[in-house]
Design a protein around this nucleic acid. Structure first.
Lengths: 168, 168
DNA sequence: AAAAACTTTCAGAATATTTTGAAAATTCAA
DNA sequence: TTGAATTTTCAAAATATTCTGAAAGTTTTT
């Protein structure tokens, strides 16, 4: 079956790419599976579909909720918990970008601030060191602000498309 | 010694953060060491400084050169190869962003194109699938273009700072 | 051409991350 | 309550990644 094949390829590809960008394979595969599923799924269905253990499913569903990529759905008359993915890909991308900003840029800014505080620029050597720390600090604050701007409102999509066009 | 301590903390922190964003610890530590070093260093010096093997040093120096973060320097009268880091942090950030765009977004765009080609929208199910693939395609092309715009010229730094200010 | 100085490679070892699955905890219906 | 259904936890096992170090490869000097 052609569609089934394409869906499997999608799930597999999503999982492989995810490892490239620091997200674990199974989490990405569960996400892909839910993205493609028109109805919400429970843990047993996901286990059967991806052939993975209950513990693994549970843990990664939790992480996906932390990332804001899936939602828990309680179906009336059902004991089991069901999960459904955010289908608006623009929202998905925003969530991922937001989370990565938090994880990747935040700690960097903090670490540089800590280093700045510990050192006084009383020798040339120390000044040199502080120059680098300060530069990294500036660039990471800039990156953080840029991300925030891009994410703050969907209007920025438009603004940036303009910038893109003007730079062509 | 206070500065030595701060430098060690910098190297250690850089290494830890790097794992968070998909780069290996040793590569980041070598990069940090070279960033802080006013003169270029050879493999033996790096081995001694970070207490790691020759093979490890060699491999990661190679990767750092691939990333465009360090340069090889041949000193007159010296047999050994010396390495020096790019000190302009804005350039460093651009290089990292460029490389990550290439590694993270490129393959995603390709994968979605492949999936699109394999499926005809002749059933509702297939249309639904193609909708998702197309949306991901669009968002990733957008992300790619945005990155490219940001990197293309340093003027974009200014433009984005304006955007940032206007959004405050 | 041989030897010395240095760099690269890569199989196996060490380390780190992910996964399993069964036990413990929780929730809910009766 | 009790107990069946379901979810969560976590130590041990499986897997994946990184690192080592010695052997092989290169380049330069003599």
């Amino acid at each position: 079956m052609e569609l089934k094949e394409a869906k499997d390829k999608f799930i597999h590809t999503w999982g492989t790419l995810a490892t490239q960008w620091g997200i674990n394979r199974t989490m990405a595969q569960i996400h892909a599976l839910l993205l493609l599923s028109s109805k919400s799924m429970n843990a047993d269905e996901i286990m059967a579909d991806l052939q993975i253990s209950r513990g693994n499913v549970n843990m990664n569903l939790r992480d996906l909720m932390d990332w804001g990529l899936i939602y828990k759905q309680l179906l009336p008359g059902e004991r089991k918990e069901y999960f459904i993915a955010e289908k608006d890909i623009w929202k998905v991308a925003k969530q991922i970008a937001k989370e990565r900003r938090r994880r990747e840029i935040g700690p960097l800014i903090e670490a540089m601030e800590d280093l700045k505080e510990g050192i006084q620029p009383d020798t040339a050597e120390k000044e040199e060191f502080l120059k680098i720390v300060n530069d990294i600090s500036k660039v990471s604050v800039f990156a953080d602000n840029t991300m925030t701007s891009l994410l703050k409102s969907d209007e920025n999509w438009l603004i940036n498309n303009f910038i893109k066009i003007f730079n062509k």
